[in-house]
Design a protein around this nucleic acid. Sequence first.
DNA 1: AATCTATTGTCTCAATTTGTGACAATATTA
DNA 2: TAATATTGTCACAAATTGAGACAATAGATT
Lengths: 244, 244
Amino acid sequence: MSEKHIPSKYVKTAKESGFLAHIAYDSVIFGFDGSTLKILISGYSNTKLFALPGGFVKENESLDDAVRRGLYDRTGLENIYLEQFHTFGSLERYIPATIEKIMLSNGHLKAGENHWLLERFISVGYYALINFNEVKPKPDELSDSCEWYPINELPPLMLDHHEMVQKALETLRGNINKKLVGANLLPEKFTMKQYQQVYEAILGENIRRTTFQRQILGLEILKRHEKQFLGKSHKAPFLYSFIK
Amino acid sequence: MSEKHIPSKYVKTAKESGFLAHIAYDSVIFGFDGSTLKILISGYSNTKLFALPGGFVKENESLDDAVRRGLYDRTGLENIYLEQFHTFGSLERYIPATIEKIMLSNGHLKAGENHWLLERFISVGYYALINFNEVKPKPDELSDSCEWYPINELPPLMLDHHEMVQKALETLRGNINKKLVGANLLPEKFTMKQYQQVYEAILGENIRRTTFQRQILGLEILKRHEKQFLGKSHKAPFLYSFIK
DNA sequence: AATCTATTGTCTCAATTTGTGACAATATTA
DNA sequence: TAATATTGTCACAAATTGAGACAATAGATT
């Protein structure tokens, strides 16, 4: 559920630490490596547990800002494209033993001790779209890894994090034609083929090339550049960028 | 933000009352009266404040169940169609003076006293679709009214509740062709015209009659009944119901 | 330098869906 | 009995999508 912004070892209540009790967020951070859609997953040292990068909300910061802060700490990026997709509040997701295991193995908790992180949390799910190549993800205090995984080769995730990924993906699919998804996953300039591959990776199905081109160009959201992409042994495709 | 399930007068902390601190929900309850889309709004005695019906989550109930409990108390209905649409966590929505005013005017608070309801809340927005004619909404302890208002004739609402209504409506519009919206807003049997009016009320625009019929019937989700709707001086329309 | 290969940009035509109007059918009112 | 308003259905035009064809061309091969 969390790894970053853990309060110091001997703070026991949320209030003492400056965070809001019972509220967490988890983020599904999508990146596109040119052919596959991937997401960032944190691993916890000494346990075999994996989780979505998450965190908590400070008393004097907005929910959105809390998520941005967490993303900045892990990726160094500001102005990330963020979309909230669902809030998870079932009773089944309250398994304090899992959090306890992580905190014990990291020395953030002594056996038998109480801690506000062991209380029940309702978690708000966000997804982010980032440019895969601009980022070297950083692990943090509690986790010892933060790595890209293809969306259909994820390790077993703790709690309801698989459900979160599924719901994030469904939302992203529903938004693919409403929001400029490609603008956030692709580099500044890209070929029509690359853009089509983003669609295919997100939707998980093949798209007809000619129909796709006709429809995308019909939206008039792309600027065509003179410079072309060279290097392959076939006709060079145009490069495009998003208008504005 | 809330009117129902207020803990007794002298309980000061969320924990003492059995609720989760900092977490609320607000519900946009849609009903269709035959021509207009309406929502339920609570009014608070002695103040001129209006709000969406909302409440809090008990320590041992899920978020969804908390919302269902609140809906049951106000409408008497079970198995209501519910959809979560957004979670609101800005700093601007934290205005304890507003809640204080309501609680003072209802005797739930003494001047200068602390109370967990005066702390900051993050609120999860849900919308519900209910059959307008089956319900006589009930006000509760803190509010003195709970009434239907047409969506474009709402009274001024407290905090960010107008934004909530707007977002609920946008989500409903986006879902209109994905989920069986009509099945929850219409009576068991209805005419094609009534169904069209639901669409027009939600979308806020006129729909072409022939195209609408062709598309809806093409979905094969409706059963046509022999019995026809009589009483008007023109050809009697068929009655339909949703399959299964 | 000529040819081959893989992919691109564009076009065409068929198939499908949607927009638009027309018209006969009919339950009630006049 | 005729008039009125709305319904169910059809017909045709317009727009969109599906499916394939084909010339153009950057680099690889010879």
